[in-house]
Design a binder for these strands. Structure first.
Lengths: 238, 238
DNA sequence: TGCCTCTATTTGTCCGGACATATTTTCATT
DNA sequence: AATGAAAATATGTCCGGACAAATAGAGGCA
């Protein structure tokens, strides 16, 4: 009869009440004590129910303030999980970064294009590929206070990994923009492609825990050799 | 001194023990009773600690079998949350789909390119934009047993939304591939772009709960009008 | 009015216990 | 040896209680 546990039943009732507007966003849910009284359950059971709602992101709880509705529906429907920086780059596992140049950011270089002061950054130019096949041409800006050496970069799969290993600065947020471009003669020859062919252009911005940018990159990938794939899964919410 | 709660301390100790190989993947962690005895805590506290590890995906628990290590490191480091189908498409909120053609899939059309039997699918051609500005040219395949009418599609922001509303078929997994292309004369004129300019090409495959494909789309977006942006956040694991 | 302190309230942590349920192991039976 | 019943065991659910910590709100004070 009562196959589902009590605390899940309570949680489901509250979820429904939130969904149908009985409790609107910003409203206060009943306190734990009130739930205990109205449903004749122990405080522990009430807490378990509210814990489910908290984990789903539907409510937030604060001492003395109570439980307030944060969203009428579970905030995220789909998620794209990433195992690490390599999954973001989507190069083959054995693709290596060949560094062509690495030094203080020139005044008229990548930093200027992004509206950054070249003084505080180091610029790297390189190409990525496996063996002789080049799959991407890259420009990178690294903040000088967390710039690894060339050797440290080359022994890690990505620059972000090198920074995390060397300086302990971990990316908290990464913004990525993908657009398309037509290869001009110079870039095409570096990539071994036909001038006038298409390429994918990815820009990535790595932010630390304070939201400050510490790493930026721009890469061109010939369309005939590179497709950016991603997979989204619907979150289980029961 | 002991600012952090006991159960979080225990969880951290276990996390560390898993990370440094004291417990390897597949090993059994101490039972709740053993944790109670060794750390002189109540079973409730031990359970709270193990709950944290379970939520992080580090361990799985089964009655009688105990707690086994599922992964040495938290499985997902970054997540890209999506609120719905519109976030995937990344068109402006007021962008509308103008349907140019909608009917049974022709034998030599999009279905053939994807290796699908044209008999079971309906093909749609359209363009998306706001007012007069066209931002994308689209080909879509819809499985015939869940194909909405043209009116149903036009009154919803996306075709996936229309299918979910009309047939109750919700996408469980969406695969997306992004590549680049050069616009030829015919497509360029439809999009109002220069022939030979670059465009972003997105292919999306929507799968239902059984993993079966029910919706596929291919869209071309002029690079000068469209950039695909995404944001990844590091998962909080504490 | 503005600022401060104090209090009451609500959630967070932790303890103790009990029974339920699923699953493995053991052992008796065939 | 194969099968099936029973026991043992680890987690899941639920109850009761107690104190701690944070903080919104009331009330007092300048």
């Amino acid at each position: 009869m009562t196959a589902t546990p009590r605390y899940q039943q309570i949680a489901q009732m509250l979820r429904a009440a939130i969904a149908n507007g009985t409790y609107k966003v910003g409203d206060l849910l009943p306190t734990e004590q009130e739930l205990c009284a109205t449903h004749e359950i122990s405080r522990h059971t009430a807490r378990d129910a509210l814990r489910l709602l908290t984990e789903a992101g539907l409510v937030t709880r604060k001492r003395r303030a109570g439980t307030v509705v944060a969203a009428a529906t579970p905030p995220t429907v789909f998620v794209q999980p990433l195992g690490g920086f390599q999954d973001l780059l989507q190069y083959a596992r054995d693709a290596r970064l060949k560094i062509l140049a690495y030094g203080p950011a020139p005044a008229d270089g990548f930093a200027r294009e992004l509206g950054l002061d070249p003084g505080g950054w180091r610029e790297l130019r390189g190409q990525r590929g496996t063996g002789t096949a080049t799959v991407g041409l890259t420009r990178v800006l690294v903040r000088t206070d967390c710039a690894p050496t060339q050797a440290e970069i080359e022994e890690r799969p990505t620059i972000a990994d090198a920074i995390e290993a060397r300086y302990g600065i971990a990316a908290a947020r990464i913004d990525q923009q993908i657009s398309a471009m037509v290869l001009d003669g110079q870039v095409a020859s570096l990539l071994g492609s036909e001038p006038g062919s298409a390429a994918l252009l990815t820009r990535r911005f790595y932010h630390d825990g304070h939201g400050a940018l510490f790493l930026a990159s721009e890469s061109a990938h010939p369309a005939d050799r590179f497709v950016y794939s991603m997979s989204f899964n619907r979150e289980r919410s029961e």
